[in-house]
Amino acid sequence: MQNMPQLGLGTFRLKGEAVIESVSTGLELGYRHIDTAQIYGNEADIGQALAATRVARDDLFVTTKIWLANLDRATLRSSLEASLGALQVDHVDLTLIHWPAKDDGVPLRESMEALAEAQSAGLTRQIGVSNFTIGHLKQAIDVVGAKAIATNQIEVHPFLQNRKVTDFMAGHGIAVTGYMPLAYGKVLEDPVLQQIATAHGVSPAQVALAWQLQLGHTVIPSSTRRENLASNLAARDLKLTDAEMAAIAALDRGERLVSPDFAPQWD
Rank of each mutant, 00 (worst) to 15 (best):
Q214Y: 13
D45Q: 03
V19F: 06
L251I: 10
V165N: 03
Q48L: 08
E255T: 07
P204E: 09
L233I: 00
L96G: 01
G85N: 14
N131W: 05
G216S: 03
A51P: 08
A37F: 01
I34V: 15
Y40L: 14
V187K: 12
F262I: 13
A56C: 01
A234H: 00
G201H: 12
P260H: 09
A230K: 00
T241N: 04
P260A: 07
A121K: 11
S78I: 13
V165L: 13
N70P: 00
V143F: 11
L182Q: 01
G41I: 01
S120A: 15
N162C: 01
W99F: 08
T53S: 12
Q153H: 08
F132A: 03
V202L: 04
Y179E: 11
W266H: 09
P221N: 05
Q194W: 05
L238W: 11
Q88D: 09
G122I: 04
T133P: 06
D190E: 13
K138Y: 04
L68V: 12
M112V: 14
Y184S: 05
S24K: 15
L71D: 02
Q206V: 00
G178T: 13
D252Y: 12
W211Q: 11
T151W: 10
I141Y: 03
W266N: 03
G171L: 02
L188K: 11
F159N: 09
I134Y: 02
D104F: 06
E21G: 06
T63F: 01
P221S: 04
S79K: 04
L27R: 02
F132C: 13
A121D: 15
L188A: 13
G8R: 05
G171I: 03
K164W: 05
F12H: 14
Q139G: 02
Y40N: 11
T25W: 03
L160S: 08
K147E: 13
A170C: 02
N3K: 11
